[in-house]
Nucleic acid binder design. Structure first.
Length: 114
DNA sequence: CCATTGACGAAGA
DNA sequence: TTCTTCGCCAATG
């Protein structure tokens, strides 16, 4: 049994989004469009954001930010920023995430052995 | 079925 | 570099 009893319909796209987000290592972040691209839907950045809006507990939703490094989440945006800061994410003086240094490639292909 | 909205992103001014 | 506009795509009214 999987979700027959669950009143929540499981969308493959949503599940994939959650899977990728769960793989983001501490100190690194990913953009909505970047996640969509990894899943094979480079035009569905907004749908990724829609999935994050319904993000389940246990998911590092704080590591998902905008492509320009801006943080979403409304009133919780500053909270997310503090959590990322605690993980070692670099920030710009403007309060945005330093994507140039913290953007996760999504595919670690031999990070040490280059 | 059409109009509006949205945790996006790139391009233009 | 900041602000505005347009395009994408699905959900909602």
């Amino acid at each position: 049994m999987k979700n027959a009893d669950e009143t929540r319909p499981v969308d493959p796209f949503f599940e994939q989004v959650y899977a990728v987000v769960a793989r983001i290592p501490p100190g690194q972040v990913m953009a909505y469009g970047q996640i969509a691209r990894v899943l094979g839907f480079p035009r569905s950045a907004r749908q990724v954001g829609r999935a994050m809006r319904h993000c389940p507990d246990g998911l590092p939703w704080q590591r998902v930010v905008m492509a320009n490094g801006d943080i979403t989440g409304g009133v919780y945006a500053p909270l997310r920023r503090a959590m990322l800061e605690q993980e070692g994410v670099y920030f710009l003086p403007d309060g945005r995430v330093d994507m140039a240094r913290c953007r996760w490639q999504g595919k670690p292909e031999d990070t040490e052995n280059k």
